[in-house]
């Protein structure tokens, strides 16, 4: 069955306006004038620069605000800076300049210990290459972030089992990574990312190494998580994947060139809504 097209809507700016409103909840991600440069001096290569000020010629930096409950797909060709952006959003890398507020916390002012706490509590990271800990059974894998958070073993086990069941791997809990298929490994990674109930799920090309069937498996899990209110930011260069998002941001050469809203922030992600509409007899 070919997925039917749904109407695309160009994103207007009301969400940015509402974010600035005094009564609205703080956005999950608020990036201001973010610049990332690799190397120093003449050898410096800008990875994220944002628009160039036409008067001074200075880079103004990337501006990005993601509301709670949103599902954002960041698209761009390789070298466009999307992975750099993702690493900064995931607190794995630090920006050269600019402000990054995660759930209202200014990340730049945190020390090493606080950063590890933020990574543990606020962010669930899913990688393209799964990045499971070798030789560790799925359940222990999912328990790991909870162990680092200091959760008691019994509680940890209960929550890890719930997370694994949520991604549909209840019968694979004792399997090690090398005994799981790519799609299953990625679903374990998703379970690991969401087990701490983080503010947002960051996925760096989560389906890049998966076949189409596994892609569907993983994306349906992500869709359901977003429908349950979890904020999701994912990187992809596949349009098929981007269709699942409520909002699509395109990066070219370290600048946001396109920001399209496909579905409202509140409400289910487009894929699930499509299912509903199918159930409801189509549009």
């Amino acid at each position: 069955m070919t997925p039917p097209l749904w109407p695309r809507r160009t994103a207007t700016l009301p969400e940015a306006a509402s974010a600035d409103g005094p009564w609205a909840p703080a956005p999950v991600i608020e990036v201001r004038s973010l610049i990332k440069t690799y190397g120093h001096g003449d050898a410096a290569v800008p990875a994220l620069s944002g628009p160039i000020d036409p008067v001074s010629g200075q880079a103004l930096g990337v501006e990005l605000v993601v509301e709670q409950g949103d599902f954002v797909a960041v698209m761009g060709s390789s070298g466009s800076g999307k992975s750099t952006l993702m690493n900064i959003l995931g607190c794995l890398d630090v920006p050269t300049s600019g402000r990054y507020l995660l759930d209202g916390i200014h990340v730049g002012g945190l020390d090493e210990r606080q950063l590890s706490l933020v990574r543990n509590r606020k962010i669930g990271f899913v990688f393209q290459s799964f990045n499971l800990v070798p030789r560790t059974p799925a359940l222990a894998q999912v328990e790991l972030p909870l162990a680092y958070a200091g959760v008691k073993p019994a509680e940890r086990r209960r929550r890890a089992e719930a997370a694994i069941t949520l991604v549909g791997l209840a019968d694979r809990m004792d399997h090690r990574p090398n005994e799981l298929s790519g799609g299953q490994q990625q679903r374990v990674a998703v379970a690991r990312a969401l087990v701490t109930a983080p503010a947002m799920l960051l996925a760096d090309e989560p389906t890049g190494n998966l076949d189409s069937r596994s892609t569907e498996e993983v994306l349906s899990v992500v869709d359901r998580l977003n429908a349950a209110g979890r904020t999701v930011v994912l990187i992809t260069h596949e349009d098929e994947v981007a269709r699942h998002a409520k909002r699509v941001v395109r990066l070219v050469d370290g600048r946001i060139v396109d920001d399209v809203r496909q579905a409202p922030v509140g409400g289910p992600p487009p894929a699930l809504r499509e299912d509903e509409s199918l159930v409801g007899g189509g549009r």
Partner: peptide, 15 residues
């Protein structure tokens, strides 16, 4: 790489 994974999911330095 494993250390990187552990750190990405929030392992503190002490652990």
């Amino acid at each position: 790489r494993e250390i990187g994974i552990r750190k990405a999911i929030g392992a503190p330095r002490g652990v």
